[in-house]
Design a protein around this nucleic acid. Structure first.
Lengths: 255, 255
DNA sequence: CGGATCTACGAACGCCGTTCGTCAACGAAC
DNA sequence: GTTCGTTGACGAACGGCGTTCGTAGATCCG
């Protein structure tokens, strides 16, 4: 096997110039956990959860799906890593237990903003019990705030848990509109909501008034408020209840 | 190839008598939408959402997956039909706007009970904007109750929406423990929670106390309350806020 | 230099949701 | 009674999925 096409390190004739480099020296920046997570997040943002597959990530990195499993145990783990990566974008406000209600509310709004910004990550947010570095950083901040404001640890645990659940659930519900919009062929969010909301309103309005007087009579009110207003309303409900439960009770609900 | 085993339409020997009837006359109770939904629900309860596939439903009915598509447009539609079928199990309390808070709370608890009873249906509950007959029946009841108690329609719409979201989200989060339990090889819920909860507690307790003083210091409080207590706590928060917003304000929060 | 360990990855396994084309059954029209 | 259009049932297949296996190369340690 000492031919000119030998593959070992000592070719006896020069390689044809057009097939010189079988392996690119640099352009493939080597596989790594972070690179996989970053690529996955980019696909998630661009194509949604349905578009995110191990094969798709591998393709984006110029390799096969099997190569990813040296860095990530399973798709679910990849999703959790992406979620924690997203949590890294949360900017925490100043830590001030005296103004706990305002600060905590700011936290919730910021968390909501970040998750909604990466629409489909909300699914992972709801699914995982987050133990990544960014998740514990956020948990320590919010949980500690409630305790330092005077709430008993068990109540603080419950309150923190419920706030995060509500924020993620609202983001998750909102994220479900995206595939629907794509399925209906709407180009942008505004057009989608115009057609979709009017359909819902029409449906409720067309219900038989004798059996569904309130739904058919108030169809307009049922679709009056959009996602953001709904989210704030529920958040206010939660925080009002919370304020009433804080022992010291130094802040008023409306703050 | 003109042999006795010819495959074309004109066999030159009579059919063996024991394979006369290729189609069974009755035993298959005919395919129908309701039968498919019922079968799907049974599989969902027995094997979870991961076990529910069109192929699995078809197999249970002794046919192929293609046969289902004459009655159901897609898997998503089947899930929504199953969800509405489950909502049919909700038993509504007596309609009494004067005691709106108690009645509405009873509604939420009953809805939670039913959804948790069919663990994985919670995913469908969160995903769909429910328009089935049982869904509108429930909506008319809860929405109407708030209006007849004196709440402006737009507020009633928001309140109803948030309550249902919270109930479904909590059930959904709870349903995610089931696959985890199966993956960890735990036989029953009690064993699962003993091992899982103690792992979580250990994890928080092992965090560096200088950077995570509250999480590591109150690890026990973080896992003290189980799913049902967490659910009630959040529900109470919502209803307290709601009571404070009802114009007439005839009921006290604690009712 | 030899062996062990780790990354890369082509190939394959067994699923999945859905579509296509065919085939039998059936009611209406002639 | 025959024809025909419609409809439900369904075998086969398409393209995609998550994951595993076996192997080849690289890298590091002794």
């Amino acid at each position: 096997m000492r031919s000119a096409n030998s593959d070992d390190g000592l070719p006896d004739v020069p390689q044809p110039p057009w097939r010189k480099a079988r392996r690119q020296p640099q352009p493939k920046p080597q596989l790594s956990r972070d690179l996989i997570v970053e690529t996955g997040l980019r696909i998630l943002d661009a194509e949604g959860l349905d578009g995110l597959s191990m094969r798709r990530v591998a393709q984006e990195l110029g390799t096969g799906p099997a190569s990813l499993y040296a860095h990530v145990a399973a798709k679910e783990e990849l999703l959790e890593l992406i979620y924690d990566r997203v949590l890294g974008e949360v900017r925490l406000p100043d830590y001030d237990p005296a103004r706990w209600l305002t600060v905590l509310r700011q936290c919730a709004l910021e968390l909501h903003r970040v998750i909604v910004g990466h629409a489909d990550v909300a699914r992972a947010a709801l699914a995982s019990i987050p133990t990544g570095p960014n998740a514990v950083r956020l948990a320590e901040f919010m949980f500690g705030l409630l305790i330092d404001a005077g709430m008993p640890p068990r109540d603080a645990s419950l309150a923190f848990d419920r706030i995060v659940l509500y924020v993620c659930a609202d983001a998750f519900e909102g994220s479900l509109h995206y595939p629907r919009m794509k399925a209906l062929g709407n180009a942008n969010l505004a057009e989608y909501f115009r057609t979709y909301v009017s359909q819902i309103e029409e449906y409720f309005g067309s219900l038989p008034p004798d059996r569904f007087p309130h739904l058919s009579g108030h169809a307009q009110a049922l679709v009056a408020d959009g996602g953001e207003a709904r989210f704030r309303y529920g958040l206010d409900l939660l925080f009002d209840g919370l304020a009433a439960r804080m022992p010291a009770g130094k802040q008023t609900p409306g703050a």
